[in-house]
Simulated assay, not measured.
Amino acid sequence: MNWLTSSVLPKIKAWVGAREVPDNLWHKCPSCGQMLFHRDLEENFQVCTACDHHLRMNAVDRLAMLFDKSEYQTIELPKTAADPLKFRDRKRYTDRMREAQVKAGRNDAIIVAHGTIENAPAVCAVFDFSFMGGSMGTGVGDGLVRAARLAETQDAGLVVFPASGGARMQEGILSLMQMPRTVAAVERLKEKGLPFIVVLTDPTTGGVTASFAMLGDLHIAEPGSIIGFAGQRVIQETIREQLPEGFQKAEYLREHGMVDAVVHRRELKAMLGRLLGLMMFREPSAEVVALPQPDLDIPGRDDEAEDAEMADAQKT
């Protein structure tokens, strides 16, 4: 082996050889199959540029999209029991939680942040579906209760973005107890006269739908979102009937009165800011000035005669 094969040739191969391409540069639209460049998706708020399908959006990007100048502060959520039921299926619950926490970079499937949306003070609680399917355990319940209390303290509106498969089975009854806890927290917020807006994202199902997610003053949904309690297949097998087309989609629920509006993601911030402003700032922003009364005197008109005629008519 000479110096050409041992030294020069490997360098040439390394220079002209195939370079490794990151796996996350291109994404395939689950609706139309179009290949989408990651920068185009980010600039379009994770909405397909070909068919307008709304892809799932991570919690951090959603918060940056919502708050003014992408400036907000997150709050630290309380730590919960690691494995209250010592649950184990194919692996231990503690191992599943540890893997999800390392992957997501947070302790649970919810982020609570506060800031302003179109100059209106707001507290946002955003679910992260990539964290164990956004399932609601004690940690998520604590997060929603903290969010409601923070909104009370700051006299701010509460906006929640659920994206969940329902209750967290690994926590059993403790997970189901978060349903009445979150309902009580929301009702206390309403008693204070503060707005509670729910933005239903894909998917919103299970115990989350059966509790706080359907108790908002207003319900907004993103286009194409799946919203319901049980899955479509389970319902069909239970009632033994074919469900209508588009059942549990956001558009279907809007037509049947379960959702107030279906709003495109690009228009969501402006819509929320407008709603929060109307619901929180009910007094006029400027001094009310009395307008002068118009002069109704018409030439040739005898007001006293007309008044006398009206009095006679009332008597008869």
Rank of each mutant, 00 (worst) to 15 (best):
T209L: 15
V126N: 05
T238H: 14
P30H: 06
A122Y: 05
G157Q: 02
D23A: 08
D95F: 11
V47D: 09
N24K: 07
D155N: 08
L276I: 06
G141D: 10
G224Y: 05
P244C: 07
N58C: 09
N107E: 12
C51S: 01
L200G: 11
T74Y: 10
R146W: 10
P223D: 14
L174V: 01
I227V: 14
E43D: 11
K103G: 07
D61K: 12
A185C: 11
D95Y: 13
G143S: 05
L36F: 05
F87G: 09
D302S: 05
S175V: 02
T74P: 03
R106E: 06
M136N: 05
P203Y: 09
L253S: 04
S135K: 07
P180R: 12
V199W: 04
G166T: 03
D202V: 09
T209S: 14
K192G: 02
A148P: 00
A286R: 09
M310I: 02
A163R: 12
M177R: 14
A148D: 00
Y72G: 08
L272Q: 07
I298Q: 13
D302I: 02
A147D: 02
L218P: 01
A120K: 02
R146I: 07
A109T: 12
D303C: 02
L291P: 00
G216D: 11
M35Y: 11
A250P: 15
G224I: 00
P30W: 04
G273C: 04
D217V: 05
A14T: 01
S70M: 03
D83P: 05
Y93R: 12
M1A: 05
F247Y: 15
D217N: 13
R254F: 14
E255K: 15
H256Q: 10
V60Y: 15
E43S: 13
F196A: 01
V21K: 06
T201K: 14
L215G: 12
Q170R: 09
A184N: 09
A104G: 03
K11Y: 03
K13D: 02
K190L: 11
A18G: 00
P195T: 10
K13V: 00
V259I: 15
G172C: 01
V8F: 04
A151N: 08
E255F: 09
I226W: 14
L85T: 03
L55Q: 10
A59I: 00
G137Y: 09
M35H: 10
G133K: 09
Y72P: 11
T209Y: 15
P30Q: 01
G33V: 01
Y252H: 13
N24F: 11
G17Y: 04
F127R: 05
D297V: 07
V263K: 10
